[in-house]
Computed example of a mutant assay.
Amino acid sequence: MYLTRMRPEQVREAVSSGLPLIMASGVVEYHGPHSPVGTDVMIAEHLCMEVEKRTPCVVAPPISFGPTTSWAAGPLDGEIDFDPAHFYGYVLELLRRLRMIGFKRIYIVQHHQGLEGLQALSLRRAAAELMREEALTWGHGWGRKRTEELPNPRIFSTIQVGSIDTYLQALPDDTGPMPIGHAGKVETQLIQHIDPATVRMDALKSIERARLPEWLPDAEEADAAEGAYWLDRCIEGWVRTLNENQA
């Protein structure tokens, strides 16, 4: 179910049924001459859409803009660096309103600079602030009560921020952890699988190999089939997590 396509009674039913809400978070930034500037948010949004096909949940519109610090490029290459202070304020208000609707579990699929990057830290800060706001309404000493007596027993996990591979389990074929890098092989092959029409591998030739950033040369090794494999493993992990934490 997609939040923006739901009627009011459907929203109320989803909330009363305890369905989780999942949303993507990414940025618009330079991903080399061969990949779309929306690579990050496209990957995160694709994961959310695939999760929705496999388990009951509500998908909210993605957070498509965030702080990039202009690390890879600038406006002339399509990169949009969002002021982190404004980003935090926007996310805080957005999450507050989603909580007001009544969603008891909110999952943010964050794909940009890992979970220690500026955007992820801003998301987690907003989640922590909303936890504090809610807890302060319970009065002093609420931690002395039994967990089941609290108005929201899952206060510390109501809003969770994870990367696309946060819930990826060890694989039986011992392929190791999922490698993720900016605009290189992994992100390129993920996009090749998600939306191949947006990728132009021959565009890599527009930059002399000696002048390629250190994170770009292995993009030539991208394999759409391998990208599909990793994405499916990530999706499985998120589906499993949503099912295990049903309200």
Rank of each mutant, 00 (worst) to 15 (best):
C48K: 05
M49R: 13
M49S: 06
M49Q: 13
E50P: 01
E50W: 03
E50H: 04
E50G: 02
V51A: 05
E52S: 11
T55V: 15
T55M: 12
P56M: 07
P56N: 10
P56T: 08
P56L: 09
C57I: 08
C57D: 10
C57F: 09
V58E: 04
V58S: 06
V58D: 01
V58R: 05
V59H: 07
V59M: 07
V59K: 03
A60K: 02
A60F: 08
A60W: 02
A60G: 06
P61V: 05
P61M: 09
P61S: 10
P61F: 06
P62A: 15
F65P: 00
G66E: 06
G66M: 11
P67F: 03
P67E: 01
T68Q: 10
T68C: 10
T69R: 09
S70F: 06
W71V: 05
A72H: 07
G74P: 00
D77G: 15
G78Q: 10
G78T: 11
G78R: 13
E79N: 10
E79Y: 01
E79Q: 15
I80P: 03
D81R: 00
F82G: 07
F82I: 04
F82L: 09
D83I: 08
D83K: 08
P84Q: 04
P84V: 02
P84M: 06
P84Y: 04
A85I: 12
A85K: 07
A85H: 06
A85G: 02
H86M: 13
H86A: 13
H86Q: 13
F87T: 00
Y88D: 02
Y88N: 03
Y88H: 14
G89W: 02
G89K: 10
G89P: 02
G89N: 15
Y90L: 09
V91E: 01
L92H: 15
E93W: 00
E93H: 01
E93C: 00
